[in-house]
C-alpha cells in the first residue's frame, strides 16, 4: 500500500477521471473491449460489405443482398478486442538526476506517470505489462487485465533503482522480439544514449506493429542549464567529472541538447512514433491529462 500511495495520488487520479488511454491504431487482442481488432468475422457487430472475390470464404456471403441485387457481397464484422499496453521504464543511473528546480527525479516522475497510466489501462479493463531496464532487462511483468495486477506493477516500480548504465538500442531489440502481441509500447526514458542505436531499437517495435509512445523525461536543469558559478559536474553512468565555468559553456551545451532532442524527434517522426517531452518540473496531472486529452481527441 505504501507504493500505492507513493505513485498513485488519489487526487490526481480523480482529475484523470473520464480520460482513457486509447490506441490510435488497431490492436490485437482476445477480450472484447474498447479497441478495434484486425480480425473480422467473430464479432456480432456488422462492419461493412465488400464484393466477393474468388477464394473468399462463402460462409460470409450475404445471401440477402444477393437475393435483392444478384450481386455477391461478403458480410464483414468488426471484432472488438482488449488493449495490451507495455510500460517500458528506463532505470539507468542518469534517471535518478533531480535538480533543485524539480521536486522529483526523472525516475520517480516516470514511475508516477507509469503507475497512473497502468491504473488507467486496468480501469478500462485492458491489460498492461511492465518492463524495467538499464543495460539489461531488470523486471518483466506479463500483461494482465486483472485489476489486482496493479499491485504487482507498483511493487516492481517500488523496487526499481537507478544504478547502472543504459543500452537502449539492444534492450529495445530484445524486447521487440519478446513482446509478441501487438500493443502500445510506452517508453519512459531520458534517452541519454546513442540516438541511432536507440532509433533502430524503436524501429524494431514498429516493425512488430506496436504503437510506440516515447515519453522523453528531462529535468529542467538539463534543458535550461541555469548554472552560473564555477561548478564541478560529477558524471553519471561512468562518465568523467568536469570543472568548468558554466556560463561560458551554456550556449554550446544548449546547442548540443537541442541537437539531441531534434534528432530524437526527427527519428520519431520518421518512424511514426509519438514523442512526448516531459519536463520534470511540470505538474504530473497536467502533463498526463494533456497527453491523454490530445490522444482522445485524435482517436475520437
Amino acid at each position: 500500500m505504501e507504493a500505492n500511495r507513493k505513485y498513485l495520488d488519489p487526487q490526481m487520479l480523480a482529475k484523470l477521471e473520464g480520460l482513457e488511454l486509447r490506441a490510435k491504431r488497431v490492436i490485437e487482442g482476445y477480450v472484447a473491449g474498447l479497441h478495434r481488432s484486425p480480425y473480422h468475422g467473430f464479432s456480432v457487430e456488422f462492419a461493412e460489405h465488400r464484393e466477393y472475390a474468388p477464394g473468399d470464404d462463402l460462409r460470409y456471403l450475404d445471401w440477402k443482398v444477393y437475393g435483392r441485387t444478384d450481386k455477391y457481397y461478403l458480410k464483414q464484422y468488426e471484432e472488438e478486442t482488449n488493449l495490451i499496453t507495455y510500460l517500458l521504464l528506463d532505470t539507468s543511473e542518469s534517471m535518478r538526476y533531480a535538480s533543485n528546480a524539480a521536486s522529483l527525479s526523472k525516475l520517480e516522475y516516470a514511475k508516477c506517470v507509469a503507475a497512473s497510466l497502468a491504473y488507467l489501462v486496468l480501469r478500462q479493463q485492458d491489460s498492461v505489462g511492465m518492463v524495467t531496464f538499464d543495460d539489461q532487462i531488470r523486471h518483466l511483468v506479463r500483461q494482465s487485465s486483472n485489476p489486482s495486477h496493479i499491485k504487482q506493477l507498483l511493487h516492481v516500480l517500488e523496487d526499481a533503482t537507478a544504478n547502472r548504465k543504459t543500452d537502449t538500442g539492444r534492450i529495445f531489440h530484445d524486447l521487440a522480439e519478446r513482446l509478441k502481441k501487438r500493443g502500445i509500447v510506452l517508453i519512459f526514458s531520458d534517452l541519454f544514449d546513442d540516438v541511432e542505436s536507440m532509433m533502430t531499437g524503436l524501429k524494431h517495435f514498429r516493425h512488430r506493429r506496436h504503437e510506440v509512445i516515447l515519453f522523453h523525461l528531462l529535468d529542467p536543469a538539463e534543458l535550461d542549464f541555469p548554472f552560473r558559478q564555477t561548478t564541478k559536474f560529477i558524471g553519471l553512468e561512468e562518465l568523467p567529472d568536469v570543472v568548468t565555468d558554466p556560463r561560458s559553456l551554456r550556449k554550446a551545451y544548449l546547442e548540443e541538447v537541442g541537437q539531441f532532442v531534434r534528432a530524437v524527434q526527427r527519428g520519431c517522426r520518421s518512424n511514426n512514433i509519438e514523442y512526448v517531452q516531459i519536463r520534470t518540473d511540470q505538474s504530473l496531472e497536467i502533463a498526463l491529462s494533456a497527453f491523454l486529452s490530445k490522444r482522445m481527441l485524435h482517436t475520437a
Partner: peptide, 13 residues
C-alpha cells in the same frame, strides 16, 4: 566550486 551530479554529461563534454 560547487559540486553537482550531472546526467547530461555527454552534452557537457
Amino acid at each position: 566550486y560547487r559540486e553537482y551530479d550531472w546526467a547530461a554529461m555527454e552534452f557537457l563534454l
